[in-house]
């Protein structure tokens, strides 16, 4: 494993920790999109189907279990927890996530590495992950007062994707057989979606002012 990949996994983990911290200690999910969280739960469930079939490494297994458990528990908190769910900004979280599920599934049926159930689900999870952040970005744009944790959460998620791209470039030169066009292209699209957010996040951090996205 290279340094970019490890750093990417760590920022991904950090994003989940930040979100759980917000939910657990502040008992708030303000500014967090339930739509995005549900999409991530689907992404991990679809991608980690190999969990019980292929053993890669202890690291791999533990990380997969962490992402599965955290994503489903976040959804549970936002839907069921009697204090947390009251802080959910339902009125502004209106992105129709069902409309991205179907296109992703169709795309996965058409473009995959192999036409098997697991490979189609893998491709589906890659396409879905690329666009799963959209409801969250829309919600942030509609939120007047973005709290720090919600901003950091999205920043770490974006950083994870950007670091994965560096990891792919590194792997391309060191492991010539390692070519996964599907994840590379989807990963680049996914990272580009954050570009605008990154700009405002870094600007606000540099000028030491509160993060605010233009409507």
């Amino acid at each position: 494993m290279n340094l970019f990949r490890l750093a990417g996994d760590m920022t991904h983990l950090l994003s989940v920790v930040v979100l759980l911290l917000k939910i657990h200690t502040i008992k708030s999910c303000a500014g967090i999109s339930l739509k995005t969280q549900e999409l991530y739960a689907i992404v991990f469930a679809a991608r980690y189907l190999d969990l019980f079939v292929h053993f890669m490494s202890l690291y791999n297994t533990i990380m997969k279990l962490v992402f599965l458990a955290s994503s489903f528990s976040i959804v549970w908190y936002m839907r069921q927890h009697k204090i947390v769910r009251r802080t959910y900004d339902k009125e502004h979280d209106t992105f129709r996530h069902q409309f991205i599920l179907l296109p992703c599934l169709v795309l996965a049926l058409l473009i995959n590495e192999k036409f098997t159930f697991r490979e189609v689900m893998w491709a589906f999870s890659i396409y879905l992950e690329a666009v799963a952040i959209l409801p969250q970005l829309v919600l942030l744009q509609r939120t007047r007062n973005i709290d720090n944790l919600a901003g950091h959460y999205v920043f770490f998620l974006g950083a994870y994707r950007a670091l994965y791209i560096l990891n792919w470039i590194y792997r391309y030169f060191t492991e010539p057989h390692f070519v996964h066009w599907i994840s590379w292209i989807a990963g680049i699209v996914q990272t580009l979606l954050y570009a605008d957010f990154f700009y405002y996040y870094i600007t606000s951090w540099k000028n030491n002012v509160k993060l605010e996205l233009p409507a």
Partner: peptide
Amino acid sequence: EHEQYEKDEL
């Protein structure tokens, strides 16, 4: 044949 399962990324 090359094994598909080098999908070690998360």
